[in-house]
Structures are given as C-alpha cells and as structure tokens.
Write a protein that binds this DNA or RNA. Sequence first.
DNA 1: AGGTATTCACATGAAACTATTCTCTGAGTTAGG
DNA 2: TAACTCAGAGAATAGTTTCATGTGAATACCTGT
Length: 404
Amino acid sequence: MTVELGNIFASAVKNSLFRDKSILQINHTPNSIPHRDKQIEQVANILASILRNERPSNLFLYGKTGTGKTLSVQYVRDELLKKAMQMGVEVRIEYINCKLRKIADTEYRILAAIIKKLGGEVPATGLPTDQVYSKFIELIDNKKQLVVLILDEVDQAVNKISDGFIYNLTRLNSELSKAQISLIGISNDVTFLDNVDPRVRSSLGEEEIVFPPYNALQLQDILQERCKKAFKDGVVDEGVVAKCAAYAAREHGDARRALDLMRIAGELSEREQSKKVELKFIDMANEKIERDKILDIVETEPKQFQLVLYSIFQLTKKSKIENFNRIFTGDVYNFYQALCNKTKTEILTQRRVSDIIAEIDMLGLINAKVISKGRHGRTREIKLSIPSNLHEKVESIMIEGLGL
DNA sequence: AGGTATTCACATGAAACTATTCTCTGAGTTAGG
DNA sequence: TAACTCAGAGAATAGTTTCATGTGAATACCTGT
C-alpha cells in the first residue's frame, strides 16, 4: 500500500508557518543585537586601537551560555574588518572555538586550527609542538600586521591542557619582530580567571567585560524581533513569546535556549497542522529538547559509560522494589563488575568508574552528591535524574548498544 | 554528658603507561641511463 | 644515480592504571562529674 505522499508535501508547503526558519537557528547572525549595546561599545573601544595600528589590549569576556558573547564579538569583528579594509590597515582577526572536539581542543590542535585559518598547512599529528609554534610565527611574522585571536570557551581548553599555552601565546609577542598578537578570551565560567596562573591572569585580563544574563523582558524583546522575521504574520501571539522568554529566563537567561524553544515549537505546530503556534507547543518543545538531549547522550556515549549508567539504572529499579532508597559508588561498582563479567567486557578500576560517574553527573543524566556516612566512609550518593517517561526508551537503547 | 580521636570508603590528584595514528628520516632497493 | 619503498624513531592524544594523599562525620573511647 502506497501512502499518498503528494498531499503531505503539498500541505506542508501550503501550511508553513515560517517565513524564514534560519533566523531562529543558532548560527544565524542578526543585524542588531538588542540589550548588548554597552558591551559591544566596550569591545569596540578596546579594539579600535587597531585602526591606529596599535596593538589592542588583551581582552577577556565572560558570561553564561547564550548571553551574546560570541555574537557581540563576531559583530565587532566584522565591522572592524570592514573599516580596516577601507583604511588599508593590515589586520587578521581569527575566531577559534576551543571546545570543538577533534578540531581545537588541545594546544597542538588550536595552533593547527589557527594556522589553517591563516592559510597554512599542518599535519594532524606527528610534529613536535614547538615546531608548530615556529610555523605559526613564520606565517604571521612575514609582514607588519596585527593578529587578533578570539579564543571562544578558553576555560575548556585551559582545564584540558593547562594554562601554559595561553602564557606561551601572550609571550609570543616578544619573539615577533614585525607582527603583533592580541588575544580575546571568552569563557562561560565566571570563576575561570581566579584559578589560573597569575601571569596568565594579568596578561589575558588586561581588560575584562562581563555579559550578564538576559532577564525575561530582554529575552522577550529578542524573541519578538526574530519572530517577526522568522514567522508569517499573526502566527505567534504575544503570550507565546512571553512564555517562551519566561522558560528561558529560568534557565539562567539563555537566549540560545529561547530561540531553540521557539523554533521547535514552530516545527511542532506545523506538524500538527496548527494555524498558530499555541502555548501548548512551547511545553511540548521544552520536553522534546530535553528528551532529545538525553537520548542523544545515551546513544553516543562509549560502552563503558553505558555499562556504568546501565548499572545505575538497574540498581535504581531494584531499589524501588526492595525499598532501600540510596545508591552509592560501591554498589554501582559491584554491579558493574558483575555486568562486565556477563558481557565479557574488561573491567575498569574503581578509580576510573568513579570518574565516569562524575562525568555522567556532569552530563546531567544522574545526580551524584558527595556525602559522608561518618564511620562508614565517604561516597557519592547517586540518583537517576532521567524523567521516568524516558526510562523505557533509554533502557532499550542501552540494551541494544551493549548487546544484552 | 561532653569532648576528642579514630576510622571507614571512597574522593581527588598526579604521574605514568598503552595503543593508535601520524610524520620524518635514512637505509636499502629498483630502474633507467 | 635518481626515484621509490619501507621500517623505525619520535610525537600527539585518549583512555586508562598506579600510586598517593585527602576528608566529613558517625562511632569508639576517654574524662571528669
């Protein structure tokens, strides 16, 4: 039996609620950035010295996710490059996201990524790091120019690698004869500069700018503006935008989250053949985002993580039946060992499993709290924090993934 | 009763090891002149 | 003799093990009343 797809497609086109969905996508760069005037101005002020051919101060930006840091810097960068072009000033401003796994999450790879952006070539491995440094120097020092490196999510890089590499970068200026480098560090972690080598702190933090979270009203503005362009007229009510903003404001004012929510709510409304984006779709979108995130994590984590998670899963189940409500690291490890024997997998040390538990905690799948049981030692008390309507689905994914 | 010292069961840290992937180098091999 | 092949040395990285040290508070152990 053939399904009549023609109708589905036809109505999909006709009933589209979107004018331009890409406006709500996270990589979209809007041409105005509301409620960030002050920060943009500050960044611009500091970088403006480029136009006088002076090296700008190193700059450090921090604020939670989705507070417009990256967007603001990109914006200033674009404007500045235009201006510099007009004035014939030699500048390179390169943006590197230090969190991208396999691309720029180690000292070597960050350097390699920069070099690549500057037009050089570096093999993925096999070269000593200092050789990569000299290649970098060679590449930029051939003429008088200013090089600004924007390092997004530096905190990630630094606690993965050590702060030595930022120090190296700042120190590089003394080895350059013609060119000069400035750094712009961007971090989500407000406390990042506190636990970092003082030399790095003073050089990277020559100037600091804080991006506070958006409040619900500001988020509403942002959403309002984008919705006007992204959706067709009359599709989104005032109340819907307000609710969406309120949801995101609860999550530490994350604009990215708000936009995602809006976009997915739109998609869901379309799928349901609704003429408008209704309030209930915001709720559904919220659930869907959460759900997709969890399922994605569970599917993509490596086998050992799944084994540990599966152990926690089973123990949680057992604890409900037998009524002993608390689960500790030791319990998990025992179950895990048994599970490894059963699946003929090699058993990791408790040390490692302890770290894995901590990592699963970071991912938000469980809630692990270090507690002391007094004479009975110190452990993590572990609680599953996957909503119960997903349990079945998650369990089947793991069973399949582990071949149980 | 009130105070302190112990002790448990891991947490947390640092270093070292392993396997894999990749480059570079130089010895040995090959083919053409 | 130039070009080519291939093994071995050296690097980077991810994931782990080994060794070492840290730790919060329930309990055991005193002490003096």
